[in-house]
Each structure stands twice: as C-alpha cells, then as structure tokens.
C-alpha cells in the first residue's frame, strides 16, 4: 500500500506472499492481555516478554487488529494532556535497545570526537554527502507528511534556503514537505530562485541543501553529522557550534519555520 514505485510494489507483493506462506506459527509465551499491550506502548516490557508479545502480534490476527486500533488513537490519548498526568508522564522512557547508563552516549561522543580530530580526516563536501547519505535521505523524505499549507511571500534569503531544500529533494526525485513547510511553498521558492539565479549558488541555497540533508541525518544517524563540511551560514550572525550537533540543526529549522509563519 505504501508503494509508488515498481520496486516498492514488488516488495509489497513479495511480503504478502511470504506472510501468506509463513502464517499461523505457534506464538511464544502466554497470550498478551490489555496490560501487556499497554506496557508495549509504554515500552515497559522486559526483553523476554516483549519478544513473546511481538510473537503473538505476528501470529494472532485478532490481537494484531486490536493493536492497530490502539496505535491509531494513541496520539489522541496522549495529546489530550491538559491536566497533570496521573503517572510520570514527563519522564523520558528508556528505549529497550538502549543499555542502562550513558555507555552508548559516551561511546558516541568519543567516536564523534575521534572523527573531528582524526589526522588527515577530510570532511565530505555537500555533493559527496548527498551521494553517501542518499538512502537515509530517501527514507527521511518518504516519511514526510503531506502538508496543505499555501505558499506565502518571503524574502529572497528565505526563498534561496527553500530553493536549496527543494533542490536537495530533487537529488532523490522526490518532492515532499519539510519540517511543516508545504511542498507548494518549496516549489514556488525554487521557481523564483531559478528566475534570478546566477552561475554559482547563493549562500542561502547551499544552506538549504545542507539543512535538508542534516535534518535527514539527524533522524537516522546523528553521529554522521560531523562528517559533512557545513556551508557558510547566509546570516553572518549565525555562529556554527564546534562540533556541529543536531540541536543546532533543529534550531535552524525552527528559525526557518518562524520566518514562514503567517
């Protein structure tokens, strides 16, 4: 159902064939009750029970259907959070695949530091980075929601950034929304940019290309952000942090969104 390309269609059909052939395996452990499903949503199951619950979901169509119903409305339940939660709603949950403590974070920091100080380590140009991270970019673009926002007039610097974002999407032959900015806005910006573009890209344009790819990388593999040489910010007051981090990327995306608010 997700498919728009023949490759994806084939994946869908191959998956359906495999699911039909391998259906009705005996599930592991006792059948999950309501609280098990709630605990799966809360990420509070231990690894063994989690595996058992997944086994039942994979092999029990009725349970799977209930799970789908829970997923469909969970956002609504969470977003209706006008009063203080009855439990520790503000507590950030530890993902089951993350080890306790800061071992992963420490290792990531060490690795990122190593990349920065590695002798002879060359940063990727934006074009090289677009090639190297094209799978991540494709997946990122594929996940962007459809936005209905109508284009609004913006200044030339913002137009350049939006045109750069659009150009970055075109490396994957995809046009999607970006961080809440609708496709129509990006297309319009690109058209405007093309009309006045010189022989070399503007700072804003390059910044837009970098912003798109960085946002995609931050959603997939944040440590890789430091592999890319950042372009010069179009706004001279913008100071690049050392090393570059995803919080900075998010800040830049938010700043762009603010400029586009009607």
């Amino acid at each position: 159902m997700t498919s728009n390309t023949s490759g994806q269609r084939q994946d869908e059909y191959l998956s359906r064939i495999a699911l039909a052939l391998t259906q009705a395996q005996p599930a592991q452990g006792s059948e999950p009750d309501d609280e098990d499903l709630a605990a799966l949503l809360d990420n509070m199951l231990d690894a063994t029970r989690r595996k058992e619950v997944i086994s039942h979901l994979a092999n029990n169509p009725a349970l799977y259907q209930r799970w789908q119903q829970l997923l469909a409305n969970h956002d609504l339940w969470i977003s209706n959070n006008t009063v203080t939660s009855i439990a520790s709603a503000g507590t950030k949950r530890r993902r089951w695949w993350q080890p306790a403590g800061g071992v992963t974070a420490a290792a990531a920091a060490l690795f990122a530091g190593w990349l920065v100080i590695k002798p002879g380590h060359d940063l990727l140009t934006l074009d090289q980075a677009y090639q190297q991270f094209s799978p991540q970019l494709t997946r990122y673009l594929d996940d962007q929601p459809y936005m209905r926002a109508l284009p609004i007039a913006v200044d030339s610097e913002v137009t350049d950034i939006l045109a750069g974002i659009y150009q970055g999407q075109q490396t994957r032959n995809m046009t999607t929304s970006f961080a809440g900015i609708g496709r129509a806005q990006l297309v319009l910006a690109s058209e405007e940019y093309q009309q006045r573009a010189g022989s070399s890209p503007t700072l804003g344009f390059e910044w837009g290309r970098w912003l798109l790819l960085s946002h995609a990388i931050c959603s997939a593999d944040p440590d890789s952000l430091t592999l890319i040489a950042p372009p010069t910010p179009p706004n001279a007051e913008t100071a690049l942090p050392e090393p570059l981090n995803c919080a900075f990327v998010d800040t830049q995306v938010s700043a762009l969104q603010q400029l586009l608010k009607q």
Partner: peptide, 22 residues
Amino acid sequence: RKFTGKSRPETFLYTLCSNLVE
C-alpha cells in the same frame, strides 16, 4: 482493578477505553 502495574495506569486505561469504544 485488573491492573497490576506492568504498564502506566493511563495507558492501561486507554486500552480499556479503546476496547469499549469498539
């Protein structure tokens, strides 16, 4: 009252409400 503490109470309540709506 079947709640045993495996999940957060509000999520458990959500599953009950979802079942009842269906």
